[in-house]
């Protein structure tokens, strides 16, 4: 166990805005690979306001559907940190000069586990603190690593903990599995290049560049005609949806490629808020996505994702506190909703 960062109260935090900006691609590349370069930042995108207003109101609750129609997409920047340390347990990044890179992690990590290693390499983390969350890995962590690798070339190593099979499959599909540095403990690199895409927020535009490449890589094996139900859908919705041609699908047994192809074949998808709808990015533009939102638990994530990926988002507010409780929806309004999203295609 290391002791140099165990005194959590003494750790300072910093974000990209505190670093000196570089301007121009050539200068940024120098900032990443010149051993003498100071810690610097490259700004890719300022915060942007995105209108996520749904296509139509289908739940009889116009106010609910207009809730948060304008969403502020977070700014995107990359930082270059000399002699920085990456902890594979928490995916926290520490700079000896500045402290903890705060945008990538919400809470201070606990004591670092394992012996400190040193690697003479320039590296980027494969994901942030939520590395094992599919939504985070697919739309934030992976895009961060893939975009930086594309910009800076093979001289940038991708690093992180030992990967789960689904993570390894995604990396392999993008050709990043070879040369992946699987960390066994906290590692100090010559330099760490990271983006603040790995913070907890809705995905940025750059997620599209990676999902589209995965979609191309995985291909399409079925005509685009299917209507899918994913995740835990309340029984009364399931029963009605089946009459509209929706089929419940179990994703657990499928590889990532098979899941991607399944979503690519969909014209409409129903699922509860959260990770169940994580793979809708593989759907073709114009696919209808019906997000079931338990009362008091509405989130913007899927809605923003749909706006960025040109999917038609619909929200169905239910009175249920969770996905398995009775929804309180009457049959007529439910059928109106299902008829609306299926007839739109």
């Amino acid at each position: 166990m290391l002791d140099q960062t165990n005194r959590r109260s003494s750790i300072t935090r910093f974000d990209a805005g505190m670093l000196t900006p570089v301007h121009g691609l050539a200068a940024w590349r120098t900032a990443c690979f010149d051993p003498a370069a100071p810690d610097q930042v490259f700004h890719h995108q300022p915060a942007r306001r995105l209108n996520t207003r749904p296509q139509d109101s289908v739940d009889g609750d116009d106010q609910g559907n207009d809730r948060g129609a304008n969403y502020e997409l977070a700014a995107v920047s990359s930082v270059s940190l000399a002699a920085a340390l990456l902890d594979p347990g928490s995916m926290a990044i520490f700079s000896p000069a500045l402290g903890l890179f705060a945008r990538a992690i919400d809470t201070l990590p606990g004591p670092l586990q394992g012996s400190l290693q040193r690697l003479d390499a320039v590296a980027t983390p494969v994901a942030g603190a939520d590395i094992n969350d599919l939504r985070h890995f697919l739309y934030q962590g992976l895009p961060s690593a893939v975009m930086l690798r594309g910009l800076l070339g093979a001289g940038l190593h991708v690093a992180g903990p030992a990967l789960r099979p689904w993570q390894a499959e995604l990396l392999a599909a993008l050709g990043l599995d070879q040369g992946y540095y699987s960390m066994t403990g906290p590692t100090k690199f010559t330099r760490i290049i990271a983006t603040d895409m790995t913070q907890k927020a809705a995905p940025s535009r750059f997620a599209r560049g990676v999902i589209d490449r995965l979609r191309f890589r995985f291909g399409q094996d079925h005509e685009r005609t299917r209507r899918l139900m994913v995740g835990t859908v309340p029984a009364e919705i399931t029963d009605e949806a089946r009459e509209f041609g929706f089929e419940a699908v179990d994703l657990a047994a499928l590889t990532m490629a098979e899941q991607a192809r399944l979503f690519a074949s969909a014209t409409a998808v129903i699922g509860p808020s959260g990770s169940a709808l994580a793979l809708v990015g593989f759907c073709d533009p114009g696919t209808a996505i019906l997000e079931l939102q338990p009362c008091g638990a509405a989130e913007d994530w899927t809605r923003v994702l749909c706006a960025l990926f040109a999917l038609d988002w619909y929200g169905l507010d239910t009175d249920a506190p969770d996905a398995v409780s009775p929804t309180g929806l009457d049959r007529t309004s439910l059928r109106t909703c299902l008829n609306h999203i299926t007839s739109a295609k």
Partner: peptide, 18 residues
């Protein structure tokens, strides 16, 4: 237009500062 038209644009966009 199709989704695959985004591939190069997103990569180039990442390379520039607005």
């Amino acid at each position: 237009a199709d989704r695959f038209m985004r591939a190069a644009i997103e990569a180039l966009r990442f390379a520039v500062e607005p």
